[in-house]
Design a protein around this nucleic acid. Structure first.
Length: 869
DNA sequence: AGATTAAAAATTTTT
DNA sequence: TTTTTAATCT
């Protein structure tokens, strides 16, 4: 992308005029018309265009239903992307719209990229002519660049990432004279994000939310933050959606232009849309509703006013606004098609509203709902297990995936038990090694086709450790990203300041990096100077060096910085941007700083900087590159290496693997305690959808693990198998007999027997304190907060026989327990622990014991887990 | 300015 | 318990 100044306002013509469409954005690629022409040629060549061949009837219906609103409920592995891309190809091929008349939104850049590629494959050639295919945010930027002045911004506004936002908020909190330790900027940034996800501006946030932060100053701070953004000519991610919404509401004529422009709207992963995205879509798609429908109120009060706006109302309801020409232009209706899967909605915690998809038919009367249930990915066992599990959710539209595939060799989903996370990792590692070896047919299972999907990232470490010792290749997906690294962010700050001298955040980041003797005092001076005159820091620096406000040393240093930047700014238009970038990094002393750094990371950082400059080559300008980085924060992984993938369940959505390992299926971890505490039943259902996502990633093999002991925050805790295990159907699941010497729950498939066969556990395997306690916990876990940080429930439950107790009283006792309540143990006691065996109590701290174990050495455990011997 | 020490967090993440 | 970040001290 070359930037934003070369986008013609409306770069297309009405196809009915039979004019050749104008070329797309300047580039050396084929004109946009080429795609449509080729697609049409493809259509004419065969009676049924070959891009439709191979679609099943439902998919085909989803592709060919071009008029009116369509909701495609696409289950996991049912060809969702195929439908989306084929539908676009079909629209183009039938001449229904020009590429630039199709708005197609995704959530991630990856999805957008994939769609572009696949449309290109269908239609032939690169899809340069689809300027409106992209993420919500990238399309938001595009809209906002065009109409920036209506949001009080200039069109060259900066996009701040999370890090910038937090630093900015910290400044604001300090400026308000608040203690930034007591009121962490990060937390407030999160709150703002939540509000923006709901489409709320400072005046609209709930009173309770406003009071919750900084002694009731929440609303003020939010407003101050927005003001600051405006003076900085900057936007955060939320604004990229909210500003266009405000602009559309305040300027019906502009909105109308987009109504005329976008004939077809397609939305990917609709179940993940948040309220703001929903508002945005509704504004753009409102013509797709029957012409008599009321338009959206211009000044929606809050998100909850929105859902109320669904009942049909006469067209006159929108009188007073200027977008009443709906019925006059029936032919130009906008056809929205949303594709999603309510069972895969796993982002509720960041504002996604499952309700958006559940409510689709109400929002868009006359909508056609098409279910895709034929699965092309997994075995019948995997689908059976996943389907039975997800059926425990209440709030769903209801789909059942099926497959025609019958293969007696297909294995069931396997549930394994292990003592602790270390053995879990060892067992998984061993299984991977076994799979990797050639089988009797001489085929080996590639590591690339295996994945370990964890609930929380702290689970990853144990696998990594194990794989390092095994010498097994692995790759972690979704760790810290390239553009979030310190050196990259520093370098970017230099580039930003060169392109946008008003970028104070960038200025402050690098004025004294590398060290130039511009310490706190100088910066504060400069800051005051800038504030007093209401000018950017860089401009202030330029002025202050003319005065004698600063000490000579600081003045000289600042003078050097300013002249450097002025020189680079002058070179911006003439010098090739990669060269300029290199020059900036060299002349600023930034490269030298790392060359002189003898720490272990320094060489890697220099390498990253080189990589950064290299990656700029594919952009036309420094500015274009900056825009890319702001929105596209991902770096590619090395695909050549054969390696096991380790990632969270969240980042696994949309992926598939031959074999999937799902460790950590224990109450408290999965479902996660916090999801339960904070989300209640809805939280549990979301966790269950996560489990569903996990299982449905597997094409052939799915192995689930649970352990009986896990260390959480340094304390060993006994754990209970996840309730989700109970929700798996016996017919599609088998319990691993025993993993050799491991298996806390004993040989003979303790888990399976006790859970599936409802038999009494074997006396010898299950009479241990851990098991008895686990059973106790199990009953409690279903209705109470079990095993959280206070060790509360554990303490309360203790041993099964610790007697009757009043919960509240116990709770109070426990609250003070670290100091007041005498422990049942004393230093020197001989104790037994399920995992570590026998040992002597070395120290007692409330309910936490430090024990010298005979075999395992010194460990800290909760006293509920040991027994006096 | 750099090193040491103390304190805080440890669910999930995109843009 | 561990890891990371911030603040304070030298």
């Amino acid at each position: 992308m070359s930037g934003y100044d070369d986008i013609p306002f409306f770069d297309d013509e009405d196809p009915t005029l039979k004019k050749a469409p104008s070329p797309g954005p300047k580039s050396g690629h084929a004109p946009t018309g080429g795609i449509a022409a080729r697609a049409m040629a493809a259509r004419d060549a065969h009676r049924a265009p070959d891009y439709l061949a191979g679609l099943n009837p439902e998919q085909r219906e989803a592709v060919e239903t071009l008029d009116g609103p369509v909701l495609v409920l696409a289950g996991a592995g049912t060809g969702k992307t195929r439908v989306l891309t084929t539908r676009i190809a079909h629209i183009l091929a039938t001449g229904r719209a020009f590429p630039s008349q199709i708005l197609a939104v995704t959530f991630t850049n990856k999805a957008a990229r994939e769609m572009k590629e696949r449309i290109g494959m269908l239609v032939g050639g690169a899809v340069e002519g689809m300027p409106w295919l992209g993420t919500f945010h990238s399309i938001g930027v595009k809209l906002l660049r065009r109409h920036a002045e209506l949001a009080g911004l200039r069109s060259d506004f900066t996009i701040l990432d999370t890090d910038d936002v937090v630093r900015l908020i910290k400044q604001i909190i300090q400026a308000e004279g608040l203690d930034d330790k007591r009121w962490p900027a990060k937390q407030f940034a999160g709150m703002i994000d939540t509000w923006k996800n709901k489409g709320l501006d400072p005046a609209q946030i709930p009173e309770g939310d406003a009071r919750a932060f900084a002694n009731g100053k929440g609303r003020e701070l939010y407003a101050a933050y927005q003001n600051r953004l405006k003076t900085l000519n900057a936007c955060d991610f939320g604004d990229l959606l909210l500003h266009p919404i405000r602009i559309f509401r305040a300027n019906p004529d502009i909105l109308r232009e987009y109504h005329q422009k976008f004939r077809y709207i397609l939305v990917d992963e609709y179940q993940d849309t948040n309220t703001a995205q929903y508002m945005w879509l509704r504004l753009l798609a409102q013509r797709s509703q029957s012409s008599g429908r009321a338009s959206v109120p211009a000044e929606g009060r809050a998100s909850d006013s929105w859902p109320g706006d669904v009942s049909p109302a006469p067209a006159q309801a929108s009188a007073g606004r200027r977008d009443t020409a709906v019925s006059a232009n029936e032919k130009q209706q906008i056809n929205i098609c949303c594709v999603g899967d309510d069972d895969q909605s796993i982002y509720g915690w960041r504002g996604a509203e499952v309700d958006n998809i559940l409510r689709f038919e109400k929002d868009f009367p006359g909508a056609k709902v098409i279910k895709l249930e034929r699965n092309y990915r997994s075995t019948a066992h995997i689908l059976g297990a996943a389907g039975h599990l997800i059926a425990h959710n209440e709030g769903r539209l209801g789909k059942t995936l099926f497959t025609d595939r019958v293969d007696p060799d297909d294995g069931k989903v396997v549930v394994h038990a292990a003592w602790d996370s270390e053995e879990e990792a060892r067992a998984v590692g061993e299984m991977i090694e076994t799979l990797q070896r050639p089988d009797r047919n001489g085929r080996r299972h590639n590591l690339n086709d295996m994945a370990i999907l964890v609930r929380a990232s702290f689970q990853m470490r144990e696998f990594e450790d194990r794989f390092v010792t095994l010498g097994l290749n692995y790759r972690v997906i979704g760790g810290p990203r390239f553009y979030e690294r310190l050196e990259i962010r520093d370098a970017m700050a230099y580039f930003r300041l060169v392109c946008q001298p008003a970028d104070d955040l960038a200025f402050e980041r690098i004025v004294n990096t590398p060290k130039r003797g511009l310490g706190d005092t100088t910066i504060r001076n400069l800051h005051d100077y800038a504030r007093a005159r209401d000018i950017p820091m860089f401009a202030a620096a330029g002025e202050i060096i003319e005065t004698d406000e600063l000490k000579p040393k600081a003045r000289k240093a600042l003078f050097d910085v300013v002249t450097d930047f002025k020189r680079w700014q002058a070179l911006l238009e003439t010098m090739p941007h990669t060269e300029l970038a290199e020059q900036i990094l060299d002349e600023s002393g930034y490269t030298a700083m790392w060359q002189n750094d003898k720490s272990a990371e320094a060489p890697g950082r220099l390498e990253n900087l080189k990589e950064l400059v290299r990656s700029m080559e594919q952009f036309e300008s420094l500015r274009g590159f900056l825009e890319h980085v702001a929105l596209v924060m991902d770096a590619e992984q090395n695909e050549d290496l054969d390696a096991v993938s380790i990632m969270t369940l969240h980042s696994a959505k949309g992926l598939e693997f031959e074999t999937v390992f799902l460790p950590g299926w224990e109450e408290g971890l999965f479902p996660h305690q916090r999801a339960l505490d904070e989300g209640g039943r809805a939280g549990l259902e979301e966790e269950r959808r996560l489990a569903y996502v996990g299982i449905t990633r597997a094409k052939r093999n799915c192995h689930i693990w649970f352990v009986s002991n896990r260390r959480i925050h340094g304390l060993w805790q006994s754990t209970v198998p996840s309730r989700f295990l109970d929700e798996l159907p016996e017919a599609h699941v088998e319990v691993a007999e025993s993993d050799q010497s491991y298996g806390g729950y004993g040989r003979g498939g303790g888990y399976g027997q006790s859970r599936f066969d409802k038999q009494e556990p074997f006396q010898n395997s299950y009479s241990t304190p851990g098991w008895r306690r686990a059973q106790q916990n199990k009953t409690d876990a279903t209705r109470d907060n079990w095993g959280n940080r206070s060790g509360h429930a554990v303490e309360r439950i203790g041993y099964g026989e610790s007697g009757p107790r009043a919960r509240t009283i116990e709770g109070e006792l426990v609250a003070k327990s670290t100091t007041t309540e005498p422990s049942r143990f004393a230093v020197g006691d001989r104790v037994f622990h399920l995992k570590f065996g026998n040992g002597n109590v070395a120290a007692v701290e409330g309910n936490k014991l430090t024990i010298d174990f005979d075999r395992a050495g010194q460990k800290r455990v909760l006293d509920g887990f040991v027994e006096r011997v």
